[in-house]
Every structure is written in C-alpha cells, then in structure tokens.
C-alpha cells in the first residue's frame, strides 16, 4: 500500500469522525432546552430534569470535541500524505481542493470556537465537511500525480493555497449567516421553524417536529451571529483579495497577461464584488440584518459555482479539475 492509498483511507476515516462529531454536536444542540428534554418523565421535578439535561449537554459536547479533534488530526495526516504521494502541494485538483478546503473550514471553526465559545456551529461545520469530503472521494477523486508544466510554480502553493483557505473561511462565515437568518426568523415568530408549519392553502404545510427549531433559543442573538459572520467573512474577503492578486501575478508569468477575463477570473471577480457589496451593505443602516445575510448567501453561491460550475462546465484556462 502506498502513501496515496493510505491518504485515501485516512480521508474516509476523517469523514467518519466528522460524522460522529456532527451527531454529538447535534445532540448537544437539541438536548437541554431543546426538543429532546420534553420526553423526560413527567413526574420528575423541573430542577432535576434541568440538571440531567445539563449533564447530558456537557457530556455530548465533550464527546463531540474529542472526536472532532481526532478527526482534525487524521485529516491533517491525510493531507500531508497526499502531498508526499504527489510530490507537491496537495491542492492542485478538485478532489484535493475539497479535502483541504474542508480542513481549513474545520480548523477555522475550532480556532473561533476556542476563543469565542461558539461550539453551536459544530454541527453545521462538521456536517458540511463530511458532505464535502464524501463528495470529493466519490465524485472528484483522481490519482495523486504531478502537474503539467503550466502549474509547476511556487504560486501553486500560495495562490491556490490561499484560494482553498479563503473558500474554507467563507464556508464558516456562510454557516454563521444561515444560523443568523434562522434565529431571526424564529424570533420573529416564524411558525414554520416552530414546527407548526407555514400558512398553506387552508391547512399548514411542512408541519413536522423536525422543523421545531427550539434549540435556536440557546444560540446567541441574530445580531451577535451577524457580527460573527461579518468577522469571519472579513478575513475571507482579505484572503480572496490576495487570491486575486497572486493569481494575477501568476497569470502574468504563465499566460503573459495579468487579467484576461477567463471564466475563472470572471467568477472570482464576481465573488469579490458581491462580498465587497456585503461589506458596504453592513455599513449602511437599512442593509444590515437579513439583507446583508442574503448577500452572504449570494456570495457563497458564487464561491461554490466558481469552484464547481466554472471547473466542470466552462472551458477556460483553469480547467485543471482532472475529472
């Protein structure tokens, strides 16, 4: 068995660990004040019940954190081994981009969570990371290999590395925004998010306990989530700016022009502009809150399209997916 195969196995292991962490994080979110607590025996007094669910929350969070850290370590090992197998920076095709991007997202989450105690983001982050890794392994996987002459440059490390990192950080920012929008809707009396269904023709539609998001109450207020999202997205925006600049420097060397409106360049530009609009929107009174949140979702949709659509649909100079 060679390094590339071991790396693939470790990547599967990472996905498994993240999946377990996601389950534990989810239990941590919904127990206690959440939905599950209501199933406790009715004759138990409230204080004991509260104490029990508190204990349960602590325990599930502990499990989630441990499994997550284990997953991160395995993840790092998988990425390093992949680099050894290919004899280069391990982010030169879509598969590697997905794996390293999810590693960055998880790492950013761990760092922010340690400093600001935002463990509530654990479930969505590990969920997205699991999905990304599994998609990468099953749909985008290519054999570890060297790269064509046009990619043999230290800019592969810098430009693509920072692009991967930026995408990971944008992902964390987007997840904060999703929670912000959910919390905002919940606070404003959305019946849908209270499991009571939305107003349909005559009878409520989508009425299900699954949509009873009472756990949202244990999250910070929407305005705090918005600030967190803004912080994270600011970092990602600076990284993205660096991606554009380093890409232009590399393109000047490799293709003889620093900007040529190649489809990838167009979409990177669109991403930059949308997030620039978001930063400006947050600065004006009437565009904070939900509207700024929608801009994040639009921006992140562009990030995703720039990664998937542009690589797979358009025929440009960035067609390095290997798929």
């Amino acid at each position: 068995m060679n390094a590339a195969q071991i790396s693939d196995i470790l990547t599967w292991g990472t996905a498994t660990a993240y999946l377990i962490a996601m389950v534990a994080f989810t239990i941590n979110l919904v127990t206690g004040r959440g939905v599950v607590a209501s199933e406790d025996e009715p004759d138990e007094d409230a204080a004991a019940s509260e104490q029990r669910s508190q204990r349960r929350r602590q325990k599930s969070l502990g499990i989630a954190k441990s499994v997550l850290i284990l997953g991160v370590l395995v993840h790092i090992a998988a990425v390093v081994l992949r680099g050894f197998a290919a004899q280069r920076a391990p982010w030169a095709n879509m598969y590697e981009f997905t794996v390293v991007g999810s590693l960055v997202a998880v790492l950013v989450f761990v760092i922010v969570a340690m400093r600001r105690k935002v463990w509530f983001l654990g479930a969505p982050v590990t969920g997205v990371a699991t999905a990304a890794i599994v998609l990468g392994l099953t749909q985008l996987h290519v054999v570890a290999d060297g790269v064509q002459p046009a990619l043999q440059s230290y800019w592969l490390v810098l430009h693509v590395g920072v692009a991967v990192g930026g995408t990971g950080v944008f992902t964390v920012g987007m997840l904060f925004t999703v929670l912000q929008l959910l919390r905002d809707s919940y606070d404003n009396g959305s019946t849908l998010l209270r499991g009571e269904g939305a107003a349909g023709r005559g009878k409520p539609i989508l009425k299900t306990r699954l949509l009873n998001l009472r756990w949202l109450e244990s999250l910070p207020r929407a305005s705090t989530l918005e600030v967190l999202s803004f912080r994270v997205n600011s970092v990602a925006f600076v990284l993205w700016t660096f991606t554009l600049i380093s890409g232009a420097i590399w393109a000047e060397d490799a293709w003889g022009r620093f900007w040529g409106w190649d489809p990838k360049e167009v979409w990177s530009f669109v991403v930059w502009i949308v997030y620039a609009a978001y930063l400006h929107a947050r600065a004006t009174q009437r565009w904070t809150g939900r509207r700024a949140g929608y801009l994040v979702l639009v921006g992140y949709a562009c990030v995703l399209f720039n990664f998937t659509g542009v690589n797979l649909i358009f025929n440009g100079k960035h067609s390095y997916s290997g798929v």
Binding site: W261, P263, V266, W267, F269, V270, I273, V274, A276, A277, H280, A281, T284, W287, C302, V310, F314
Partner: peptide, 17 residues
C-alpha cells in the same frame, strides 16, 4: 454604490458564458 456593485457583478457574468 451598492446598486452599481451588484450591477457590475451581474454584468460580468455573460462574458463567462
């Protein structure tokens, strides 16, 4: 300015298609 930014982003897209 916000409107123009969003317009610029939208106007750039046809060139990629």
């Amino acid at each position: 300015a916000l409107l123009l930014l969003m317009l610029l982003a939208a106007a750039a897209i046809p060139g990629s298609i």
